[in-house]
């Protein structure tokens, strides 16, 4: 009855395939990934189909209730005070919301990671200065900063992205610096140095690939935060301005009609929740999956298994050595 264990496989290809399989094992994470993919698709292609409908006012149909298909499938989520389809506006808003959140995250990810890795690699004064700046930015409530700045500089999509990105840069700074600092003392970096490799090359070729999984996980979680921030700002009136529409703005606009047309605020908020929760679930799955020391948690059969962290025999039996 001896069990056969897999031989350790080192190739990158097989580890990527294993990642997909690992994802499929966890149906909750898979569901989250599908939801996010769906939202991305809707944001990318949706407005092409319903763009006009979203702006189409139809005063006869104002404040129609949802879940009645008699008005056509477009109004399945109801209409607003001007008769515009909530569903259509939701779809158009998804593009606006994502077009703010994604660039902001990407911007802060790239800038924060590069500076952080550089600071962590070189250590010394560069590191201290960078960390002080990060502390300064972080010690301030981001929403407040955004409100003040946007008020002074007027809210536009670009300003919004910029402000959100700046407030989030310290997150990546810290993570990238910590990992980079830890790695730069490792032997393989010294080895590269003895070959006369330039620092930038070392950072890109050796440090970056190792730090990347953690950074991506952080970015996924940060995406949630940025989305919520943009929604809050739009809600307060300092974010996306009409006639553009974002989910946060829709919630604000529906607020006055809460008693008569609850769906105007409800569905946009629901959209935010669903997207954010999916991103959070995916991020927490990714955190386990990209850390070879923790991956075994995902391979345990369901049930009462895997109670506490397991040492020795179980880990030895489970985890193939992955370099």
């Amino acid at each position: 009855m001896t069990a056969v264990l897999e031989a350790p496989s080192e190739s990158r290809v097989s580890s990527q395939v294993a990642l997909w399989r690992l994802l499929l094992r966890d149906w909750v994470a898979t569901g989250a990934a599908l939801v996010l993919a769906f939202v991305a698709l809707v944001a990318a292609f949706g407005p092409m189909f319903v763009g006009d409908e979203a702006a189409q006012q139809n005063l006869l149909d104002a404040n129609a209730e949802p879940f009645r298909l008699s008005d056509g499938w477009l109004n399945v989520l109801g209409t607003d005070a001007l008769g515009r389809s909530v569903l259509a506006r939701l779809i158009v808003a998804s593009r606006t919301t994502l077009s703010v959140a994604v660039p902001a995250v990407l911007l802060s990810l790239v800038i924060g990671s590069l500076i952080g890795m550089w600071a962590g690699y070189h250590r010394g004064r560069r590191e201290t200065v960078v960390m002080r700046i990060a502390d300064i930015i972080l010690s301030f409530p981001s929403l407040l900063m955004a409100v003040v700045v946007l008020y002074i500089f007027s809210p536009s999509s670009a300003n919004l992205i910029l402000v959100l990105a700046i407030t989030r840069i310290p997150i990546y700074l810290r993570t990238a610096r910590a990992e980079s600092a830890e790695l730069q003392s490792r032997l393989f970096v010294d080895a590269a140095r003895t070959f006369g490799t330039r620092s930038s090359a070392i950072i890109f070729r050796h440090v970056l690939p190792i730090v990347l999984p953690t950074l991506l996980t952080v970015a996924t979680l940060d995406f949630c935060f940025v989305m919520l921030s943009e929604s809050s700002l739009s809600f307060l009136g300092i974010g996306i301005q009409p006639p553009s529409v974002s989910w946060g703005l829709m919630v604000a606009q529906g607020r006055t009609y809460l008693q008569t047309a609850w769906w105007l605020s409800f569905f946009p908020g629901l959209a935010i929740v669903v997207t954010t929760v999916s991103a959070t679930i995916l991020a927490s799955w990714a955190r386990l999956a990209t850390d070879p020391a923790q991956r075994w948690r995902l391979t345990l059969p369901r049930g009462r298994r895997g109670r506490r962290a397991i040492r020795r025999a179980a880990e030895k039996a489970l985890t193939p050595e992955v370099q």
């Binding site: 009855m1 069990a3 298994r305 489970l318």
Partner: peptide, 11 residues
């Protein structure tokens, strides 16, 4: 015995 996803091992 130890439970692993690949079966039971006798330690």
């Amino acid at each position: 015995d130890i439970e692993t996803p690949n079966g039971r091992l006798r330690a």
